[in-house]
């Protein structure tokens, strides 16, 4: 067996892979938060709850309708995205012109309601969700054993993140989005339906959270509180990266996942808190965040 710094390579790379997977979720979630923040100027506290709803959607699709993982990967984000559209149209839109903190409080309330309803119905224990047959098993790479599903999660998340980056930074649609983030009034005065863009942006952001939820379902169990603590770490990731840059959100997400994984190997007691410690250090050195544009 190969040893690195006294740790077996199996354990080291296994933890790194787990870290990378968490990093993929951090990236997907903080990407959604950044996109929503850009257009709506709110931090979506309901993000963790909607991540959980995404996982439950996959569970319901399978157990109630017999619809498997692959369709769920598309349906769950659509359902949650639609839910987000309704939240935006019926509630968030009415906060226009108020202090941005109200948006935060409102979405916190939504998170409590959603999590409360699921807890009321399903308690706090986890529900199992099987890895799809086509991704069962794994391969031995010599220095580590690589489960297929985990490899898929990392690669697929990366593809989704990069595709989102491409759409926002390189396409006409993305140009509208960037312009409306800067100056919604003028973009609207050019004849663009900015309120509709805002609604769809919120829907898209939470759909990304739901997608992460579906990806997480076979790895972590499906639990009503799976997003509650997780989202706080994502907030720390967002503070570290700064929400100004799309690529920044993606990189920070994966990077912190890896660091967390390494911490699990070398100093497991700190693995829960390492992201927060890094946040504190970044606040001291570069308060605007690694990729933040303004202080």
């Amino acid at each position: 067996m190969i040893q690195i710094l006294g740790i077996s390579s199996q354990a080291l790379f296994g933890q790194l892979l787990l870290g990378l997977i968490n990093g993929a979720f951090y990236a997907l979630l903080s990407l959604g938060l950044a996109v929503i923040f850009g257009m709506l100027n709110i931090v979506n506290f309901a993000h963790g709850a909607l991540y959980m709803v995404g996982a439950f959607c996959a569970y319901f699709l399978l157990n109630w309708f017999g619809i498997g993982y692959w369709p769920a990967l598309l349906i769950a984000p659509l359902v949650v995205g639609l839910f987000g559209v309704i939240i935006e149209r019926t509630m968030l839109q009415r906060l226009a012109g108020l202090d941005h903190l109200y948006g935060l409080l409102l979405t916190f309330g939504v998170a409590l309601i959603v999590q409360g309803v699921f807890q009321y119905q399903y308690g706090s224990s986890g529900l199992p969700y099987e890895i799809p047959d086509s991704l069962k098993g794994g391969r031995n790479l010599g220095f580590m054993y690589l489960p297929n599903y985990r490899a898929w999660v990392v690669i697929f998340s990366l593809v989704v993140c990069l595709a989102t980056w491409y759409v926002i930074e390189k396409t006409k649609l993305g140009a509208y989005l960037r312009a409306a983030t800067e100056n919604p009034t003028i973009v609207r005065a050019f004849g663009v339906n900015v309120p509709l863009m805002i609604t769809l942006t919120y829907g898209f952001g939470v759909a990304l959270a739901a997608l992460a939820g579906v990806l997480a379902a076979p790895i972590n169990q499906v639990r009503p509180l799976m997003g509650a603590d997780f989202i706080i770490v994502v907030f720390a990731v967002v503070v570290i990266g700064g929400m100004g840059s799309i690529m920044g959100s993606i990189l920070t997400g994966f990077l912190l996942g890896l660091i967390e994984g390494l911490t699990k190997v070398f100093y497991p007691e700190a693995s829960n808190t390492v992201v927060f410690v890094i946040m504190a250090i970044v606040l001291l050195i570069k308060p605007a965040g690694l990729f933040g544009r303004t202080a």
């Binding site: 140009a175 960037r178 100056n183 003028i186 050019f190 004849g191 663009v192």
Partner: peptide, 16 residues
């Protein structure tokens, strides 16, 4: 109101 996150071409082509 030139958009700083858009290049000149994107700015020019922005208004529908």
């Amino acid at each position: 109101a030139i958009f700083s996150s858009l290049d000149v071409k994107e700015n020019l082509l922005l208004p529908p």
